[in-house]
Design a protein around this nucleic acid. Structure first.
Lengths: 192, 192
DNA sequence: AACTTATACGGAGGATGTCTCCGTTTAGCA
DNA sequence: TGCTAAACGGAGACATCCTCCGTATAAGTT
């Protein structure tokens, strides 16, 4: 048996940089409403070869997930900040509205769904953990405070949010989505 | 200017039959969880040539819409029947639950979304009218009866339903979706 | 600074799926 | 039974996906 290599070379800087560029280009493609995001087009935009794209992201889903994950991280951070600065009920409501803004304005979820439906939570499961943690925290505090029924499954709310944010195709969706947030909150009150 | 032809030949029976077969085959493909529904495969299953498929449904969306429309018609009929046999609030709630069953169990919406996001309601707008009418009716009656706030936009609820039914990928979605229906109803009450 | 080598790059080209075009077949009608 | 509009079928042009491998370069070594 050969000795296990303990000293690993530091990752190459160009690799790291290209990876970031690719994610950036993919995100831009989404936001331009490119339902069809051709891979060669994305690699061209990022200024790298096609082979490079495929090495970093072997499948379409891997690329989508990477974009998705960077977005989720920001949202996760926002949850912590809101929890620290607002009363529980308001923190929850604000975060849910932020969720709508953050995801739906960027039309990010919608294309991502394509792969989400593929398997049971392939993509969603990985970065979804962060979101679950965030909303569990927010709901937990609201329950303790008596703003929300204790029997509410936090993940139910998250599911509704994902759903609501998806239907962002026609004009007026944004106002509608925010009204729905309020309806959901109202329906989650202890006396409802 | 030539005389306008007033006598049109009756549509050919084989054309009609093949059209139905194709819709049937496509629906089956959806239900088998075929996220990738290859066109040649569908035409093969229907026992017709590829050319025939493309003549009947020039684009992928056209085929999806045809499948979608047949489903929507059943749901629309159910709304009328529920309105006739239940008290308003119960009719609305039952229909919303039926919506979840009807669409989400069949995983039908999810693939259909692919085209929905393409343009502003391309597909959704056409058959969506039926759904809009159905829920407008149900909500209208519930409002008159004092079960639901008057300022609720019926389409908001529909949007939420579509969204909720979409996230049907992981186990437990069904129970979650139905809990959400109750939360939505509770949040729509006049005193909420 | 020069050398070594693991790591990453790029894009040609094969595999796979989409969609069109047109010669052949068939159902409706007289 | 003959005529013809309507429908059929599938070969093949076209587009996109993804793999493979020779070349280039950054990290570590002397």
């Amino acid at each position: 048996m050969t000795e296990e290599k303990t000293t690993r070379r530091r990752p190459r800087s160009d690799g790291q940089r290209n990876r970031e560029r690719l994610i950036e280009a993919a995100k831009a493609a989404f936001q331009d409403g490119e339902t069809e995001m051709r891979f060669d087009e994305i690699s061209r935009r990022a200024g790298v070869g096609i082979g490079t794209l495929y090495r970093h992201f072997p499948t379409r889903d891997a690329l989508i997930e990477a974009v998705y994950r960077t977005e989720v991280e920001g949202l996760s951070a926002a949850a912590q900040q809101l929890a620290a600065t607002c009363v529980p009920a308001e923190a929850l409501r604000s975060w849910m509205r932020l969720f709508v803004d953050y995801f739906a304005t960027k039309q990010l979820i919608a294309p991502a769904l394509n792969s989400l439906v593929g398997g049971p939570g392939q993509l969603y499961a990985t970065s979804g953990e962060h979101l679950k943690t965030a909303i569990r925290e927010l709901v937990g505090r609201a329950v303790e405070n008596g703003d929300i029924r204790a029997d509410l499954d936090p993940f139910d709310l998250l599911r509704a949010l994902v759903g609501v944010a998806n239907v962002a195709a026609d004009p007026g969706w944004e106002a509608s989505a925010k009204r729905l947030v309020d309806i959901l909150i109202a329906g989650s009150r202890p006396d409802a």
